[in-house]
Nucleic acid binder design. Structure first.
Lengths: 215, 215
DNA sequence: CTGGCATGTCAACACGTGTTGGCCTACATT
DNA sequence: AATGTAGGCCAACACGTGTTGACATGCCAG
């Protein structure tokens, strides 16, 4: 069904110097930035917007290219194929805060506020959610982000190590659930809440999932 | 962009008797069931499965028809177009329980358990979520279900009427968030929880969103 | 028995998609 | 100044999609 051969001339090598890499000494300026850096960035930005707004299937390469002001074939040249584009566009850094410095009673509030602001800072996380629900690869990526970026941070403050995974999943369920209602489904009462109200409501929940003893 | 004219010969009238409806008296058997009832049901079942598994865009009419063992054009004949099919397939009854009978302290547990079982009973709710995230019309439908089926039930037990909408949204965020992690993203720690563990963890949260005074 | 209608199949249309290869242009090194 | 190469555009391909209309079949009323 799927034709999965790699592109013939990928050119996806991220930051390889344009000149012969086999040259023993390239001189003073080790790696000159490519002229195409601006185009690459424009494509990536447009892709994030489109994936966030439309999800994986409905976000078309043609639309992304139009937004970026270039030809669709450029997208293929730089990112190989649509999956590659998505992989590059959803390179996500949750930037989870260092909770070791936070008083243990304030971890919940800190987490909630961080994710609200992170979510509203750019559309990357909305894109991640839209694609994570639609696409198998997207779901895998979300699991990866959870395992590599969320869980480790919680491990440092979870009182019972062997329950850290469960507690992290519970916290994720509450935070992702609110993000779903507020940023994706646009449920009016969820949209109407201010940041402070959100923190006041959700922080105790997160705090309990983190520190309350197992019921 | 979109060609939105209605189908020429819809035939979407749900249970209209096949013979002339203008006949003053049709005799003893008021409405004879159509011969096509089985086909209609097969299409609907296949559509629910496909929408749940693939989301709106990737669920193709051809695949649904193949699953139902009939020709794609039959789907068009009975449901007009893909949107109509989806509308019919996602006719959702959340079957929210009557909370007036439940002791006020057990409402949270009752709600959580109900939705876990409802979610695992069939794939309708998973389909709703997949499409609600992908598709604008799907999101609208989810908001409608929330407003018409969830909020009214909570209104009956919410101590502060003017906060009912907010509290209902908070509850929805937790329940939908867990459903997202467990049934759509398949996050391992969320999948591993038993029903009783889920209720034990989530019920206090729901209970607090319902009855705790506004923070 | 006969005509009409519901049921169903087949083949095709028009369109949008991801993807490809060829060609042109401008820059930077030699 | 010559030239190789990266950057970019254009036109097209092959394919899958939703959708449509013409045609076959069988059931049921008259």
């Amino acid at each position: 069904m799927a034709d999965r051969r790699p592109p013939l001339t990928p050119d996806v090598d991220l930051d390889a110097p344009p000149v012969a890499a086999a040259a023993p000494d390239a001189g003073d300026h080790a790696r000159r930035p490519r002229r195409s850096a601006a185009t690459r960035a424009a494509i990536l930005a447009a892709a994030r917007d489109r994936f966030a707004a439309d999800g994986y299937e409905r976000a078309t390469i043609r639309a992304i290219a139009r937004d970026a002001g270039i030809d669709p074939s450029m997208v293929m040249r730089y990112y190989g194929n649509k999956e590659g584009l998505f992989a590059a566009a959803s390179e996500i850094d949750v930037r989870a805060p260092d909770l070791a410095q936070v008083p243990s009673g304030e971890v919940g509030a800190r987490l909630v506020r961080h994710f609200i602001e992170r979510w509203e800072g750019d559309e990357t996380l909305t894109a991640m959610m839209r694609v994570g629900v639609t696409n198998t690869a997207g779901a895998e990526r979300m699991r990866g982000i959870f395992a590599e970026q969320i869980r480790p941070v919680l491990d440092t403050v979870c009182p019972v190590p062997e329950e850290a995974a469960t507690r992290a999943a519970l916290i994720a369920s509450q935070i992702l659930g609110m993000a779903l209602c507020r940023y994706v489904l646009h449920m009016p009462p969820a949209v109407a809440l201010t940041h402070d109200e959100l923190v006041a409501w959700l922080a105790p929940t997160v705090q309990r999932y983190l520190t309350a003893q197992r019921p």
